[in-house]
């Protein structure tokens, strides 16, 4: 059983009060270039998920509380939540620095676009 804190309403509860919403920051290829989406890209977008040992970025919903979605960074080994952040936000800088795999690329691009 893991304990979750909702960053929107501040409620604390275990995972049965919340709903896990899968991997966060998955990019939909059609959003950037709708005319040229390959079958492989679409397959990866729909079905291929990253399953790392360590830091994992995911979406959660405060299911039985305020009903809002939020993001969380969680360690899949210790099950510790490293950070909670809003559904439209990026994680804190120190967490971004630790990101690997598809998330590292995603954050890099988002940070670039921000500047």
């Amino acid at each position: 059983m893991i304990t979750v804190n909702c960053p929107v309403c501040g409620a604390e509860g275990d995972e049965t009060d919340f709903h896990y919403g899968g991997q966060a920051h998955v990019r939909r290829p059609a959003t950037t270039d709708a005319a040229n989406v390959t079958d492989e890209e679409q397959r990866d977008y729909l079905f291929i998920r990253h399953n790392p040992k360590g830091l994992h970025f995911e979406r959660w919903r405060c299911d039985r509380g305020c009903g809002k979605w939020f993001h969380a960074a969680r360690d899949t080994v210790s099950l510790d939540f490293k950070a909670y952040y809003g559904i439209t936000e990026l994680p804190p800088d120190e967490i971004i620095a630790q990101a690997k795999g598809p998330w590292a690329d995603y954050f890099k691009e988002r940070m670039k676009a921000k500047k």
């Binding site: 309403c9 409620a11 604390e12 509860g13 275990d14 009060d17 299911d63 039985r64 009903g67």
Partner: peptide
């Protein structure tokens, strides 16, 4: 599974729960 005896649940508190 909530810790209802904690100080978080003082009179006036409202929350949805399971």
């Amino acid at each position: 599974t909530l810790d209802l005896i904690s100080e978080d649940y003082a009179p006036g508190t409202v929350r949805r729960m399971r």
